[in-house]
Amino acid sequence: MSFEPKIIAFLCNWCSYAGADLAGVSRSKCSPNVMSIRLMCSGGLEPAFVLKAFKEGADGVLVCGCNLGDCHYVDGNYKTLMRMTLLKKLVKQLGIEEERVRLQWVCASCAEDFVQAVNTITNDVKALGPYTQIKIEAEAETSRI
C-alpha cells in the first residue's frame, strides 16, 4: 500500500475555516490526508501545537489564516507570520524537514487556495516519506515551548 500521510491543518475560524467549508460547498475534491482543527485566529496558534502534532505522529502541518490585512482581530496573522518564520527554523533544528510545515493565507472565498494548499502539502510530504521521530521526543517532551 502506498504511503498515506497524516497532516494536521490549523485554520482560523473567520477566513480559512470558511474557505475550507466553501471548498466543500463547491464540491471541490482534495486529498483526504489533511484533518483540520479550528482556532479562533491563526495568531492564537501556539507553536507547541505544531510540535505536538509531530509528536503524535503527524507527517506534516498546514497553518492557514486570513490574508494579511484581513485578520478578524486586526493583526493576528502578522504575528502568525513572524512566529511561523521562527518555528520553521526550530523544526529544522529538531530534524524535521521544513517542507512539512506550510503557511498559507486562505480567505473566506478562496476555496481553491485551500484545496491547492492541501494538495501541495500532501504531495510534498508524500515525496519526503513518513516523518520518523528523531529528536523531537527528547526535546519536546514538554508540552510547551
Partner: peptide, 24 residues
C-alpha cells in the same frame, strides 16, 4: 483570539473553549 495565549511563555493564559488543553 488567543494571540496572548500563544505568546505567554509560562502558559498562564487560556482562552475559553479554545484552551491549550482542549486543542492538544
Amino acid at each position: 483570539c488567543n494571540v496572548c495565549g500563544a505568546a505567554c511563555p509560562s502558559g498562564a493564559i487560556s482562552t475559553r473553549n479554545f484552551s491549550t488543553i482542549q486543542i492538544l
